[in-house]
């Protein structure tokens, strides 16, 4: 290891980044996955950046048209946030379902995306909510949709080791409801076999303008347009069409994989459960008069 920096601002981070040139860089958020991966084989050329001392990477704020979510916010802070539960329910679901209390206390939303695990829970929730990531690098600030960050390849994303995710912006969309659910091998503390996030506009029992993202089909979040169309169908056709679309999509994503029959079945379960959650949430928000947002 060449050095370890604990910058206190993005500006300081970028200055330090410029100094370390082509050295291998490690950006450390909660450190959990980093420690497991690098313990004992940290290269001598590595430069470490501890992101835990940067206030700009923190905070959950309602900015009227969008929610600002600092990338270093933990799963615990996210799922215990009332603002997130109200306006980004799917993300709240995802944060609550990840790992154990101990892991949720450390795992950050930025780290969960940056790590590019295909079984990660929050990326599909962020994607379904239309979240964008504010990324800084030596070439400046850029705003990428979460889908753009995820990219097309499994186990890697489109960020380089000099990119830092500062925050996420989640658009506030009135009359929208969202939900996330995963299926693992235990009811709690389990890596997802399949996970799915859905958001849609809800009115009088009908959905429209839906977004559907499925995790674990080779990458962290894949958008499924046919399932989105199915969700807008009339209620008598909706559930079956939704399931059919998901299964067909899974067949296209992981054709011939031995896990495909199980994933299809689990997707049908997720379809039922998520529809129920969405309807319940839709009815609750209509009833309360307080329209919640995606």
């Amino acid at each position: 290891m060449k050095g370890l920096f604990a910058p206190q601002s993005i500006k300081e981070f970028l200055a330090l980044l410029a100094e370390c040139g082509k050295n291998e860089k490690h950006l450390i958020a909660g450190g959990t996955d980093w420690l497991i991966k690098t313990r004992g084989n940290l290269s001598e050329e590595a430069v470490l950046f501890d992101l835990s001392k940067m206030p700009e990477l923190r905070g959950i704020e309602n900015k009227e048209s969008f929610l600002r979510l600092g990338s270093m916010e933990t799963m615990t802070s996210i799922h215990s946030s009332g603002v997130i539960r109200l306006h980004a329910t799917a993300l709240s679901d995802a944060a609550a379902s990840m790992g154990s209390v101990q892991i949720r206390n450390r795992a950050t939303v930025g780290g969960n995306l940056a790590n590019a695990s295909p079984a990660a829970d929050t990326p599909s929730a962020l994607a379904v909510l239309g979240a964008s990531a504010v990324v800084f690098s030596l070439s400046g600030r850029r705003v990428l949709s979460v889908e753009e960050v995820l990219g097309p390849c499994p186990n890697k994303n489109t960020l380089s080791d000099s990119d830092i995710i500062m925050e996420f912006c989640i658009p506030l969309r009135k009359e929208y409801v969202s939900a996330f659910k995963k299926i693992g091998s235990r009811s709690e503390v389990s890596i997802a076999r399949v996970n799915m996030a859905v958001s849609a506009r809800y009115e009088d029992g009908n959905f429209s303008d839906a977004r559907v993202f499925i995790g674990t089909l080779g990458s962290a979040a894949k958008r499924c347009p046919s399932a989105e169309t199915a969700l807008s169908m009339e209620t008598s056709l909706r559930e079956q069409s939704f399931k059919d679309a998901l299964c067909e999509f899974a067949g296209q994503m992981i054709p011939g994989r031995s896990t495909l029959p199980y994933k299809k079945s689990a997707l049908m379960a997720l379809a039922e459960d998520l529809l129920e959650m969405l309807e319940e949430r839709g009815r609750a928000s209509e009833k309360s008069g307080e329209k919640s947002h995606g």
């Binding site: 450190g31 497991i36 892991i103 450390r106």
Partner: peptide, 29 residues
């Protein structure tokens, strides 16, 4: 387990439970 999966190493960090086997020591500064 050394992987944050069994909780035997749980300690409180600022009042919150963490698995001390997956917390970088320098982050406890």
């Amino acid at each position: 387990c050394g992987a944050g999966e069994c909780g035997a190493c749980t300690v409180l960090m600022d009042g919150e439970a963490v698995c001390s086997c997956v917390v970088p020591a320098f982050q406890t500064d």
